[in-house]
């Protein structure tokens, strides 16, 4: 006996919902596009304005200033030099710009949400399961909703990256504020502090280290996502890898892969150092 269930029109339904959202959220997507696009352009222009060699020196000096560690500094200089030598300089600049812009957007949305969740128990009860759920999804799933809103391209990549990398910023901010000893908050209350005074004079300063930990994670997640987002048109180092795969050029893919590893190591070291001090 053969019996066929009618196929559920799930895909159609979702497309209808997305259509609706795309139409009605146009103002938001336009604003996001503008910010993201301008941001990247600005970053890229700034970093391409000087000769790569000068930029390498500048970055090396910056890393030394931030870490005061000889090892990382030398690694930065040699690593960046290698990247330039392999002809991956503009791809790297593009990747760094994407990471930076995505991170800035993720933090400036994520930290306020985190603060709100810390101060409002109900908000946290709603947001927390969402964050938990987001963490279980594989990274490239985030690419799907980006396309209907922004089409293929860098803005869509940034959007996916922002969504993907925001959870730690929210989570750690909430955690950091909740971790502030109750008696200190009580003390601020006893002296007649209002909500904002409490937040800016006591809670945020004391949560700073934890929040910085969240920011670090956000940056590292952003880097990993920017690479994956090459699939929807983020260029950069991820784009080089993606192209090499499509053209069956393992050598070129490997070179771009090394570039990504170098950037990741430098970022990780600098961030670790920053969050410790």
């Amino acid at each position: 006996m053969s019996f066929e269930l009618p196929r559920l029109p799930l895909g159609d339904g979702i497309e209808a919902v997305l259509d609706f959202l795309v139409h009605n959220l146009a103002f938001a997507t336009k604003a996001f596009s503008a910010v993201a696009d301008q941001g990247i352009r600005l970053m890229e222009t700034a970093m391409m304005a000087v000769h790569p060699i000068i930029m390498i020196f500048i970055l090396t000096a910056l890393v030394f200033y931030l870490t005061r560690q000889r090892g990382v500094t030398i690694f930065t200089f040699l690593g960046m030099g290698l990247i330039w030598n392999l002809g991956l300089w503009s791809a790297t600049v593009s990747t760094l710009s994407l990471v930076l812009v995505a991170t800035l957007i993720a933090i400036s949305i994520g930290i306020p949400i985190g603060i709100f969740c810390a101060l409002n128990g109900y908000a946290y009860k709603i947001v927390r399961p969402i964050l938990d759920f987001m963490q279980t999804l594989p990274a490239f799933v985030y690419l799907i909703p980006a396309i209907p809103f922004f089409g293929l391209g860098r803005v869509a990549a940034i959007f996916a990256t922002v969504i993907f990398s925001m959870p730690p910023a929210i989570r750690f901010t909430t955690l950091g504020i909740k971790q502030v000893p109750k008696e200190l908050v009580e003390c601020a209350d006893a002296f007649g502090a209002d909500r904002w005074q409490k937040l800016f004079k006591i809670q945020l300063p004391l949560a700073k280290t934890t929040i910085m930990g969240g920011v670090n994670q956000t940056i590292m997640l952003a880097l990993s996502m920017v690479v994956i987002a090459a699939m929807i048109g983020a260029r950069g180092l991820g784009g080089e890898v993606w192209r090499a795969i499509q053209r069956l050029q393992p050598g070129a893919g490997f070179e771009a892969g090394i570039g990504i590893v170098i950037v990741a190591i430098i970022l990780d070291r600098v961030l670790q150092k920053l969050s410790k001090s």
Binding site: E186, A190, I202, L206
Partner: peptide, 10 residues
């Protein structure tokens, strides 16, 4: 107000 465990802001 003065607290048992001082409650100074570190």
């Amino acid at each position: 107000m003065v607290f048992q465990n001082f409650a100074l802001f570190p």
